[in-house]
Design a protein around this nucleic acid. Structure first.
Lengths: 237, 237
DNA sequence: CGTTCTGTTGAATACCTTCAATTCGCGTGG
DNA sequence: CCACGCGAATTGAAGGTATTCAACAGAACG
């Protein structure tokens, strides 16, 4: 879409540069690298475009060269739960490539995206002959599993204020004055945290009223980190 | 515990037999098999015993030779969310071995257990020289990720009746008369589904009243499969 | 300067949890 | 063989948290 093409018009980093930086493709021999390049294709996705649907056979996986992608589940009623939001350098949909199953969730472009695409069959062949890549891949999948375990924990064990507090603490870079800029709309944040935008509004409102945070148009300053940690641990808000 | 030792006193299948059957160790060469055996140790865990705690450094992973194990998260208030229940032939805690992180959850024995244990370092060395095992491992991790995605979906997108209906449909073997025996207490089932035993009781009660299921001491018969599927899709109960 | 998307706020409601009181099931020991 | 005791399961009542629906305010963008 032209709308997408207009996003962030800085020269897109060369595919190679982004791929080289990925933990997945670190330590490749020249030979392995050549073979990887041979099976790589670069594709574009417009803002809002569906990259793949749940349930369809997995044909390959993706690495983001530019833009942001959301992975999500849909309920029969159309409610959405975002599993994860990926950005430059991240890869997604590796799991179905190796499990042989179909995609377990949806993927859609949050912004215009440039993606490197690796066909499943060729990539499996590559990995089966490259122990280094296999280990890298195992590491990547394992880390993603940690993330999913954390999502389950949040959804089932914590209430919305605790989930939000945890999110803020995780995203705010350490430093004297901890602050962060939300890289998403509050609606998206709500979907990631398994709640609604109204509830996010209300909880943020309560936090502001208590002087725990300050917030102005997606910029959040953590004023009382201790209180946030308490909320994380289940303290009433 | 002597109590555990008394469980199921049929002669424990030889470790080798169980390990051979695992998708993880299929297609190993004789050499690979020998090296695997060399790093394997067999350990016992009593019923209720903690196998590992969340947060401690992962030293290795496990394959169940006999018994059942639960993997779970704990909230600060002590509430428990079961991520998965494993039994004979299943393996667990592979992820931290490859991510280099610590255990992201707890593991405890539901029954007396016999476990094969593989030290992380030796196992990584083995995998790095065995492309077949690397691919098997990737497949196993990928399938586990599918499971976790399903758990997230259930917790965030579905209400308790839908989760329960889905569980029943999944566990009841296909056939003319679909029925199943719960391999766990209703309390455990509740923890797996992210709810309480009281709620499970009430929902099962409503299902019985509507003639959708029959139930008697852990034995459940699915009388109206269509209705169950509807509930899965969000139909009111 | 209007349109559209995003965010805020209020009121009613639904669903689940918690607490408490029983009841049931079953193995154990008298 | 029966009674006891303990964990598991059931049921009721009260309460809390989040959702939903709806109306509106604000910001971003062309």
């Amino acid at each position: 879409m032209s709308d997408a093409a207009r996003e962030k018009r800085d020269p897109v980093t060369a595919p190679e540069a982004v791929m080289r930086k990925s933990p997945l493709f670190r330590d490749l021999t020249d030979d392995e690298w050549e073979r990887l390049r041979a099976i790589t294709s670069v594709i574009r996705a417009a803002r809002g475009e569906t990259i793949f649907m749940e349930g369809v056979e997995a044909h390959g996986f993706y690495l983001i060269l530019d833009g942001r992608v959301k992975i999500f589940k849909l309920s029969p009623e159309g409610k959405e739960q975002i599993l994860q939001i990926f950005s430059q350098g991240d890869h997604f949909a590796e799991a179905p490539v190796f499990s042989g199953k179909s995609f377990p969730a949806w993927a859609a472009a949050l912004t215009g995206c440039t993606l490197a695409y690796f066909p499943a069959k060729s990539f499996r062949a590559l990995v089966s002959e490259s122990p280094g890549m296999a280990l890298n891949m195992l590491g990547a999948l394992s880390r993603y599993m940690h993330h999913l375990v954390a999502v389950v924990e949040e959804l089932s064990l914590q209430e919305v204020p605790a989930r939000l507090a945890r999110f803020l603490l995780e995203k705010a870079p350490a430093g004297a004055r901890r602050e962060l800029t939300l890289a998403m709309t509050k609606g998206e944040l709500a979907l990631r945290l398994g709640t609604t935008s109204e509830t996010i509004s209300r909880v943020l409102g309560r936090m502001k009223k208590r002087g725990i945070i300050a917030e102005k148009s997606r910029k959040v300053v953590l004023l009382d980190e201790g209180a946030l940690i308490d909320i994380t641990h289940g303290a009433r808000l």
